[in-house]
Nucleic acid binder design. Structure first.
Length: 397
RNA sequence: GCGUCGAUGGCAGAGCGGUCAAAUGCAUCAGACUGUAAAUCUGACGGACUUCGUCCUACGUUGGUUCAAAUCCAACUCGGCGCA
């Protein structure tokens, strides 16, 4: 009998890129595919119809930590699960909360991202703290120990405890098709010793996540569990992580942690050479076009990233160069106030067919919410279709 | 007409003798954003230059007091309010 989530390989290109189908209880995902991120069970500024019909997204991802805090996973469960609650009629994924161990922990208030800019990224370009009171009280909002992580809620300062078992329990309640084992995402600047320690801990949590998942027979029938490969920027650790997790037998594999632009490809190659060929691979939090291309080239199947919607909300949109590469432009720049050309001349999305740069520029200057909405549609469309084209190229190869 | 209050950088609005090229907010200009504490955050914002510094021009106008004035005094101009 097939597990609830399983991968069908359609074609493997000579360079390692692969096209396939991830089968889930709520439908198929044709891969490579981009996953729209809707952390709090909402892809910010978009209705499900928008990201499904206008964008062409096949799958959406929500976050365990956020939905646990608000509205509470029990409410989502009572509503009939994530699909019913949010009207997401498509395959879904929940992320475990592992990224919040990083963003509310090591990265808290430091402006550090999981993506190092270069060899000497000290990532200290100014403070980036949203609640100065909370920051000065706690320094960071989460503490890690062997068993799990203690979070201080960013909403009200209350204490919460996440363990591997707890994350799985919450994800069972949320009911996404694909759930992810609780892991620790480390900073790109972390020392080798610490990367190793965190990776080993993530492996122990992975084992416990499988156990917890297997104990819930109902969930086991309709949710697939992914393990998370860690190891930071160290190839030997990446390889070890891929090996250890492969042996555990997950339904699929997520690749998490931090990278830099330069070593992303190498890290992925090491990992995907080891991961089982018959299981889907998801590259967590990666979504700039060139990074997706690199991921696909190294056998990754799905990708998620907040960038398309986040940059959209502040007036940045993807735009094709004449040579087909994609760049970002800032619609609030003065030069666009009278630019009556489409947002992207080389795009055939709903927004580009109907609206101009000047109109979007006006919406952003006037702080009208339609600006964020339209820019989000265009940006997601750009990335979703960029990934879709990579799939077509593989199938045609 | 009399009385009274006020006039500050693109706008609003602090400052009320030196540490003021002038707080703060808005606007403007630019930048950042990779498993979303993000409709957020950062920087610049009178001018010139040899731009972590120097020099000009600036707080309605003109004149004065003072070592020193956006800050004190006088007249004028304009505006709000009150009384005729």
């Amino acid at each position: 009998m097939k597990p609830p989530v399983w991968f069908e390989l359609e074609k493997q290109a000579p360079n390692g890129a692969r096209a396939g189908i991830i089968h889930t209880p709520h439908g198929d995902i044709e891969t490579p595919a981009f996953v729209t991120v809707g952390t709090k069970a909402t892809v910010k500024s978009l209705k499900p119809e928008d990201f499904k019909d206008l964008v062409g997204a096949q799958v959406a991802l929500a976050n365990t930590y956020h939905l646990y805090l608000q509205p509470g996973h029990e409410i989502v469960k009572e509503a009939g699960g994530l699909h019913k609650f949010a009207n997401w009629n498509m395959p879904t994924i929940t992320d475990s909360g592992g990224f919040q161990v990083f963003s509310l922990g090591a990265a808290f208030g430091k402006g550090v991202t999981k993506f190092a800019k270069g060899e000497h990224d000290e990532a200290q370009q100014g403070l980036n703290v949203y609640s100065k009171e909370v920051a000065s009280q706690h320094g960071q909002l989460c503490q890690i120990d062997e068993e799990g992580v203690t979070f201080t809620s960013h909403h009200d300062g209350s204490l919460h405890r996440f363990t591997a078992e707890r994350s799985i329990e919450i994800q069972h309640a949320l009911g996404a098709d694909i759930i992810i084992a609780f892991d620790e995402c480390t900073a790109p600047t972390a020392e080798y010793e610490y990367q190793k320690e965190a990776m080993d801990r993530t492996h122990r949590w992975a084992k416990r996540s499988i156990m917890a998942h297997k104990q819930n027979y109902e969930a086991l029938k309709k949710q697939g569990l992914y393990g998370v490969v860690q190891g930071g920027r160290h190839l030997d650790l990446r390889a070890e992580s891929a090996r250890v997790l492969s042996d555990m037998g997950f339904d699929g594999y997520a690749i998490g942690g931090s990278f830099s632009k330069e070593d992303l490809g190498d890290a992925l190659k090491v990992v995907t050479d080891i991961l089982p060929k018959d299981k889907p691979r998801h590259l967590l939090g990666i979504g700039e076009p060139e990074d997706i291309a690199r991921g696909v080239m190294h056998g990754c199947d799905t990708f998620d990233c907040v960038a398309p919607t986040r940059i959209a909300r502040t007036g940045s949109v993807y735009n094709h160069n004449a040579d087909g590469t994609i760049k970002r432009i800032h619609l609030k720049n003065a030069k666009y106030t009278r630019d009556f050309s489409p947002v992207d001349e080389h795009c055939d999305c709903y927004v580009c067919k109907n609206y101009t740069k000047a109109y979007l520029a006006h919406l952003f200057r006037a702080q009208e919410m339609l600006g964020a909405h339209l820019a989000s549609i265009h940006n997601l469309y750009t990335i979703v279709n960029y990934t879709k084209k990579l799939r077509e190229q593989i199938l045609a190869s």
